[in-house]
Design a protein around this nucleic acid. Structure first.
Lengths: 348, 348
DNA sequence: TTGTAAGCGTTATCAA
DNA sequence: TTGATAACGCTTACAA
């Protein structure tokens, strides 16, 4: 906004210049045919020269429509999310909306604050990747009847729309594949424990082990931040015998996210172990560049762009038609076999 | 926002319930000591129970402060930008601001629209990575005296603050290194031609060649979108002899962005050439995961988080102190030697 | 201690 | 064809 000394151009200031009332200016700028063509053009010319831009806030206040859509994610930097909001942003732009973006950093308090602020700002709808199920923030969203679409997760309340990939199935796909390759001791690097996707992923992992008669050991399930550093610290603990799991207790690693998998790659460099020689590794998301890693990362693909498109279209439909109809869209994960996981038999 | 049938909680509606005037409510909610403690608590309790959230837009309209900061970038999805706005977002959050984010997609028209919308929305400042120097959008920014910080580029007008990495130097670093390795025919994959960073990068490349007595050939400088696909199409053209450059005319590739470099990796897979066997490759940005590529990508590091921090602090200082002081912060690039570029001598 | 009124920049209704 | 007026929700003198 301008410095205090430069005053804003408004319909009023234009009215003064044009020697008409401000409501005449308003009409002229809206091409109201009631206004004399000459005055209209004269006014529009003045507005143009002054670089007049309507104050959307004032307009919003008046007609109770802001054209703001809020987007609340857990890590703006994550390539996983960025593909999603790229897709969302494109649609928003085309349909004349503006995106308010904020980052909850996997923190329930911050999420609450973000939601609250956005409601205050009059967002017409929110796309959120929730920190956990049933947080205060989510309760607020429900009580205030804010149009909401969950992504990356299904809400426990059916009164909310959502678009998500079936994480249970994703973990099943990966675990099944590892078992086929002969792995029975699989370390699960599962991100933040409260994260809904983490819980589902764990379920898919555990179910599949059980189906194959393999015991699920809690000590094989690790919760750490989704970051390269966080992952390295976990592996460091294992290699320094500070963990209940020893370095030779497992043969494969399943990661909740490709970023975590990349953390394992970093660890491999640091500790000098080989992938998939020492450990087979499978990631999740299929983010940019995983195909070109050394070795190419075997991972489970999430349709990220699709997620974004579905989510924003669902939301905008609700917003524009003022519907209270809810839909749950479940997308399918897909195993992408590359070279970071290999058969145990051949290695022995 | 709520459905049409659910009406919003306002100080007025609370006033009705509490049987006081709406200004009493306003004061009570602001802990005005003038209000009787009992009434104050009673009012606050009603507000709490009703989940009252102030309408920030109305407040903004009144006191001409929105606490909105706009961020306009060229590709939301790019890992390069996402590290930057992660940093910006963190600061914004802490200081009570909200980020409006939009994507110009390297399109001058879109940029203009984005700027214009944001001004309409009353942003108090803008961080922009401009599509080109001297666009209409930038002119608008100047005329309206919007507090602005350029990133990834230096404005031709000194009246704008900026934070950027010296792209000329970055290209020099990379080119110098390639020349040291014995390369003299270096293909430059330089992104969109109008992009300011592209022009600087080219300059650094050309200057360095000349300093070493190597002729700068226009046909070696290619302009393509910054994407894997766009890069592949360029290499395809070369391999299909549809280009003025033949596949054996050069020994190294310098890319304006790691994303482009990754495109070359994809091409290598498709056409079966080896990196650095056939071509040495150097990228720019040092985005996530480039360290683990096969081969690890030699690239030039940009301090992205730092860029974000400097930019937002610079901007917020201007905004909050209403200063018209401008600063240009130049950050230094750094060559990161890994394994995608190698000496020519040894290959022969 | 509480209430009244004006104003922020719009839009829309009604009167002139 | 143009102008006056009220309203959106909030803050803040000022009056009671």
């Amino acid at each position: 906004m301008n410095s205090k000394n430069t005053k804003r151009i408004t319909i009023k200031s234009i009215a003064q210049q044009a020697n008409v009332s401000f409501s005449t200016v308003a009409k002229a700028l809206h091409d109201d045919p009631a206004i004399n063509e000459k005055t209209r053009e004269r006014i529009k010319e003045i507005a143009r020269r002054a670089n007049y831009k309507p104050n959307i806030l004032a307009k919003s206040l008046r007609d109770n429509k802001t054209k703001f859509i809020g987007m609340i994610l857990n890590d703006l930097q994550s390539p996983f999310y960025s593909e999603i909001y790229k897709a969302v942003g494109d649609v928003l732009n085309k349909r004349g909306y503006t995106m308010l973006l904020s980052d909850s950093s996997y923190d329930e308090m911050l999420e609450m604050k973000n939601i609250s602020t956005m409601i205050s700002q009059g967002v017409e709808g929110i796309i959120i990747s929730p920190v956990c199920k049933d947080s205060d923030g989510i309760r607020l969203l429900l009580e205030d009847q804010v149009k909401t679409v969950f992504i990356d997760n299904h809400p426990s309340d059916p009164n909310i729309s959502c678009v998500y990939v079936d994480h249970v199935e994703a973990a099943r796909l990966a675990t099944e594949y590892l078992i086929q390759l002969g792995h029975r001791k699989i370390l699960l690097l599962n991100g933040p424990e409260k994260l809904p996707s983490s819980q589902d992923f764990r379920k898919g992992y555990a179910n599949t082990l059980q189906e194959h008669g393999i015991e699920v050991q809690e000590r094989f399930i690790k919760y750490n931040p989704i970051s390269i550093d966080g992952t390295c610290r976990q592996i460091d603990d294992i290699f320094a015998d500070r963990d209940s799991v020893g370095r030779d207790d497992f043969t494969a690693i399943l990661a909740l996210s490709d970023v975590i998998a990349i953390g394992v790659y970093e660890s491999a460099l640091q500790h000098g172990f080989s992938i998939p020689g020492k450990y087979s590794v499978i990631g999740y998301d299929n983010i940019l560049a995983t195909k070109y890693l050394n070795p190419p990362l075997t991972t489970v693909q999430q349709p990220k762009e699709q997620t974004g498109h579905y989510a924003i279209n669902l939301l905008l439909d609700q917003v524009e038609k003022d519907l209270d109809e809810h839909r749950q869209i479940i997308l399918n994960p897909e195993l992408i076999v590359r070279a970071s996981a290999k058969s145990l038999d051949k290695t022995k």
